[in-house]
Structure formats: structure tokens, C-alpha cells
Design a binder for these strands. Structure first.
Length: 578
RNA sequence: GCGCUCUUAGCUCAGCCGGAUAGAGCAACAGCCUUCUAAGCUGUGGGUCGGGCGUUCGAAUCGCCCAGAGCGCGCCA
């Protein structure tokens, strides 16, 4: 088990701090802000100077003097007000790089206490086509799912279908209005159901009576009306089957395909529990829980609506109860639009009041909206919401245009080309989504999908494809990997960058922030491109150098593939250009 | 009205539990393909970090005030 470079350096520093009787709290390094001066730096002397009433340069000098004796360290200097600059010995870097190359986790540890996490993302609705808003939840959620699994936690993902709210009553009402009954329901496909929903939605916006009818049907459905239940089950099944296809194509994995409706029984328990605890009250015909207001407005949670139906606040609370009781969740993570922040604050508060999930960590990871070039939520030219399937097709078409036609390249017929098109198009879409902080929204530039230059998914995929090409050639020429030798700046930078893998993965894990992985994957690919341009592998002057570079290149390829996997992005074997 | 989030290069964004010269990508300009895939590489220009005050040896980063933008605020989800 190889420990990370930073841990190793921190241990060295801790010993020195102890010898000098300094607080080891400050005995840690970070990647140097001045790569021209050093590989790592320690700012501990600056932080210690004030409490000790000593000159920071003097403290730094004492630390540096001891650090200098370490043969793993090539140079130590004290600069500026008291920064300790540390440069590593090339042999030390080579040794660590070599050990990473032989480790399938590239030096990344696992969490000390693995626990069970239930993740809630996706959030599709019955009868509604997925749109770009669903893209983020699926892409971010899947990435976090993979990161958490990689660091050793057990993750159960649940799509949490929206199948129990007023839209159910709306669509049933609309079918009855048009057909006179529900007899023909089971002849409708997803397109027809979706059309009913659109009409129902338009009608309920205009007509208060239609809305009231929909609400009543929803309540009756929830309370067990057999005719409504039968129709509802069909509508739900059709929608689930449809949505499963697109999630499969997106590469989002769900262990459970439960929905709001599955929490219905538990809703009753929650309502009873609230009554028993004396925290609920009846107001305007609805059963509610009032929440303490501090300095911010905190609307009450509605347990039972005045029409007798349940809303999404209770189903969410009841779902938490189930996840804790049945799934034994120790942590629950929601990947849902940032605009739901207040809702989750309310839900989490009620859960605490009712003691439903003691010692369970509940968190909402809110993401920003996908915007168009005008900064407003992304819309199609005619003003409608962009359908996810359409978006994927547009992106694929752009990729297809940049590639050879099937049959033009030997061994690449229609299926092979289409596989590459899909991998690259999704690489572009997902990386675009994951490269920025997930809390902030981002501008979705459809036109940019034609380029794939710079900080994009295809850039990283391209680096991998080039390495694959080299590995094929090496195999054909019987060139094998050898010990890592560091003899120039580009090899050195690349090896140092590889050593950040564990640190990066753990930061992404702790902050639930895939963009940290995305950013690192990009800079690693960039370092490789530099290396690629200045360090010939197959034609290096000496065989040992070739063998070393081959090992480095293969390691970079494996690390990049792992990073892309953590982002939910495929790594194509080759990249073909028209 | 109350609350939350945000304001960094022409554009899109990193950096934010205080540290050295604020970084990328795109766009612009100038170079690099008889040599492992040019979806690449190198170089140039481009900044009052929204404004002000404060804390500090040191502030894009912490606190307060102001301005502007987005979002949310009981029976939709």
C-alpha cells in the first residue's frame, strides 16, 4: 500500500516539528503556488510566528535545516516572509511514480469508516419527457455515486420517480374528458400519454374548475380508488420503461426504481407520528407542522392538503423513514435543483423533530440551472424546453460530421462509428456539465459542440486515444515498460501531477464536487500533451528512456480512464478524424 | 417586504477555512505537421478581483455597509 506523496511529506514535517517542539497542527505541505521555485511549500512558520512572538523566517530556517538532511528532498529554501519551499529528489519522484504504476488504485486509500449512502437523483416524472434540467441531476448524481463507491462507501441509488402528485390527477382527468372513460388507457404509448399531460397542463392553467377536478382525482387515487389506481399503474409502467432507456444511454445507474407512491403507506405513519408527538395542527383544513422562524421566513410543512391528498413534502419525509428503516441508510444525499433548498431545509427539520433519522447525515446538493446564451434557463428557438433526447441527437450529429463515414476506415463500420460518436458526444455533454462548480449554473452553448477544443471531454479522450496508439505500436515492436527515470522537466511535471490523484479524489469526495476531478483530469491531460510533444517514446535515444516513458504514458492513460470513469464518461479506444 | 446565492480578463468560469507574481478555456494575434493522431503544442496581448470601510505584518479570500443580478418564500413538484 503506497501512501500519498503529501502524507509522506507531512510525516517528515511532523517529526521535525516535534523535535523543534512546534505545534504539529501546522506541519503540512501543499502544492507549491510557485512551481518555478519548488514542488511543495509549507506555510507553517508564518502561522506559528504570531503565537510564539518569533520571526517567521527564523522558525522556517530551523525547519528547513532539518528537512535538508532528508535524501528524498533535493532542495529546501526559505523565501519571502517565511515560506518553506521544498523540491523533491528526482529519484524519489521516480520511485513513487513507479509504485503508482503498479497499483490499481494509483495510491488512493479508502475511507476509514465505510458507510451506507442512499443517493436520490434523476427525479423523472410520469408522462413528462426528460429535459435538460434532468440532465444535471443524472450526470452529477452518477458521478458522485461513482466517487463515493470508489472511496469505499456502499451506495444505493434511487431514481425517486415523480408519480404521486397532482399531475397524476391532471392526466387522468384529461383522458376521462376526452374519452369519456378510462377504458382505452392501456392502448396509449408514452407519446400519447405525454400529449395528454401537455393538454391537461394547459387546461389547468386556464381553468380553475379543471384544476379542482384534478386535485380531487389525485386525492382519490392516493386514497385507493381502484379504477384510478389501475390506470395510474399503467401510466407509471409505461413512463418508467421509457425513462429507463434514456438513463441507460446516459450511463446513470439506479439500484432502485422507486417513486413517491412507494412511500404512501409510510406517509400515514408519519402523519400519525406527528399527531402523537403533538407537533401537527389543523389549519385551513390542512394538517400542517409549523417550524420555528428565526430571521428567515419558514413556511409550514403541509402533511395533508385540505382536499385530503398528500404532497411531496410528506412523501419526501416518509421516503427518508423508509430509507433509514428498510435500507439502513447512514447518509442520504439528494442531487436536486438548487431552487429546492428551502424545501429540503423544511423536510430535514421535520425529520429531526420526529426523530425519524437519528444519526443519519442528510444533505442536499443543489445545482444551478442550465442557461442559454442569454443567461436565462435554456430554451429552444421556439421558446419551449429543450428535450433531452433532442439535445443528445444534436450533439451526436455534430460529432458524426467530424468523423469518417462508416467504411472509410478499415474496421470501422456503422456500429463501431456510432459507438465512438456516442462516447464522444456524451463525453462533451457530461464534461461541460461537470467542469464547473455544481452549485453555479452554466451556459449551454450548443454551437460549441462542433469544436471540442480546449477544456472539454473530447480533449481528455483524445489524450487517451493517443496513448492507446502508442501502446499498440509498442506492443507490435516488443517494447516493454521499465523503471521510471526522471531526466527532464516534462517527465518530472507529469510524474508530480500523477501523485495528486488521491488528494484530488478525496477532495471531490469530501466536497461532493465532481468538478475537482474534471479540473484535475484536464490538467493531467495537458501535462501529458506537453510530455508528448517534447519526449519521444518509441524513438528515445536510449532503450531505458523509452521503457520509462512507456510506463509513464500507460500510467497516465490508466489514471485518465479512471478519472473519466468517475465522471461517468467513456474513454474511446481511438479518435478518428474525417 | 423577508431570506438565500452571486458579481474575478472581451465571453464562460477556476481560485475563497488569509500568504509570494490572481489562473484556465474560448475569442484575437504570431508561430509549429518528411518525426508516437494538429480534436494537439509554443508564444503575445488582455485585470481598479462590483464599490467603500474595517480586521491583519499581509485580503479576490474574513467582517460590516452600499450598488447591481438571479433564485426562493403554505396546500404545484
Amino acid at each position: 500500500m503506497s501512501s500519498s506523496i503529501e502524507q509522506t511529506l507531512n510525516q517528515k514535517l511532523e517529526k521535525i516539528f516535534q523535535r523543534l517542539k512546534l505545534d504539529t497542527k501546522f506541519a503540512f505541505v501543499k502544492n507549491s503556488d510557485r512551481p518555478d521555485l519548488s514542488d511543495f511549500q509549507c506555510n507553517g512558520a508564518l502561522a506559528l510566528a504570531k503565537p510564539l512572538h518569533k520571526n517567521p523566517r527564523e522558525i522556517a530556517g530551523n525547519i528547513a535545516a532539518l528537512l535538508e538532511q532528508d535524501t528524498d528532498i533535493a532542495a529546501v529554501s526559505v523565501d519571502g516572509p517565511g515560506f518553506i519551499n521544498i523540491s523533491l529528489d528526482n529519484g524519489f519522484i521516480a520511485r513513487i511514480a513507479g509504485s503508482l504504476a503498479g497499483d490499481e488504485r494509483f495510491g488512493c486509500k479508502k475511507v476509514e469508516k465505510p458507510h451506507k449512502i442512499v443517493m436520490d437523483f434523476g427525479g423523472p416524472n410520469v408522462a413528462k419527457a426528460l429535459h435538460v434540467g434532468h440532465l444535471r441531476s443524472a450526470v452529477i448524481g452518477e458521478s458522485i455515486r461513482r466517487i463515493e463507491t470508489f472511496v469505499g462507501n456502499t451506495v444505493i441509488s434511487d431514481v425517486h420517480f415523480g408519480d404521486w402528485g397532482t399531475p397524476m390527477g391532471m392526466i387522468i382527468a384529461e383522458i376521462i374528458r376526452q374519452d369519456g372513460s378510462l377504458d382505452k388507457v392501456e392502448t396509449y404509448d408514452v407519446g400519447a400519454i405525454s400529449a395528454f399531460y401537455k393538454q391537461a397542463n394547459a387546461r389547468c392553467k386556464e381553468d380553475e374548475a379543471a384544476k379542482e377536478t384534478a386535485r380531487q382525482i389525485t386525492a382519490d387515487l392516493q386514497n385507493g380508488n381502484p379504477e384510478y389506481r389501475k390506470a395510474w399503474k399503467y401510466l407509471r409502467d409505461v413512463s418508467v420503461a421509457d425513462v429507463k432507456k434514456i438513463y441507460a444511454e446516459l450511463g446513470a445507474h439506479f439500484d432502485l426504481w422507486l417513486g413517491e407512491s412507494d412511500a404512501h403507506a409510510a406517509c400515514g405513519e408519519v402523519i400519525e407520528l406527528a399527531k402523537d408527538k403533538g407537533v401537527s395542527e389543523v389549519d385551513d383544513g390542512a394538517t400542517i407542522i409549523r417550524l420555528p422562524e428565526t430571521n428567515k421566513p419558514m413556511p409550514p410543512v403541509i402533511l395533508v392538503k385540505s382536499d385530503g391528498g398528500v404532497g411531496y413534502q410528506v412523501t419526501d419525509i416518509a421516503t427518508i423513514k423508509m430509507r433509514v428503516n428498510d435500507l439502513k441508510a447512514e447518509e442520504i444525499i439528494y442531487v436536486v435543483d438548487k431552487r429546492q433548498t428551502l424545501h429540503f431545509e423544511q423536510v430535514f427539520q421535520v425529520v429531526q423533530m420526529l426523530g425519524i433519522a437519528p444519526d443519519v447525515k442528510l444533505s442536499h446538493i443543489g445545482f444551478g440551472t442550465v442557461n442559454g446564451a442569454d443567461g436565462k434557463p435554456f430554451k429552444t428557438r421556439d421558446g419551449g424546453v429543450m428535450n433531452l433526447a433532442d439535445l443528445i441527437n444534436l450533439s451526436k450529429e455534430k460529432v458524426r460530421q467530424s468523423m469518417p463515414k462508416p467504411g472509410e476506415v478499415e474496421g470501422y463500420g456503422e456500429p463501431e462509428i456510432e459507438k465512438l460518436v456516442s462516447e464522444i458526444a456524451f463525453g462533451a455533454i457530461k464534461f461541460q456539465d461537470l467542469k464547473n462548480n455544481i452549485g453555479s449554473g452554466y451556459v449551454f452553448e450548443l454551437d460549441d459542440f462542433a469544436k471540442f477544443d480546449g477544456k472539454t471531454g473530447p480533449y481528455i479522450q483524445y489524450a487517451i486515444a493517443r496513448i492507446n496508439s502508442i501502446l499498440r505500436k509498442a506492443q507490435a515492436q516488443n517494447l516493454t515498460e521499465g523503471d521510471v527515470i526522471i531526466e527532464n522537466a516534462d517527465e518530472r511535471n507529469l510524474a508530480l501531477k500523477l501523485m495528486q490523484f488521491e488528494n484530488v479524489v478525496f477532495r471531490a469526495h469530501e466536497e461532493k464536487e465532481p468538478s475537482i476531478i474534471a479540473d484535475y483530469a484536464y490538467t493531467l491531460a495537458q501535462n501529458f500533451s506537453n510530455f508528448y510533444n517534447t519526449c519521444p517514446i518509441m524513438t528515445a535515444d536510449e532503450v531505458q528512456i523509452s521503457a520509462s516513458r512507456l510506463k509513464l504514458a500507460r500510467l497516465v492513460r490508466d489514471v485518465l480512464k479512471q478519472l473519466l470513469y468517475l465522471l461517468g464518461i467513456e474513454a474511446p479506444e481511438v479518435m478518428l478524424k474525417a
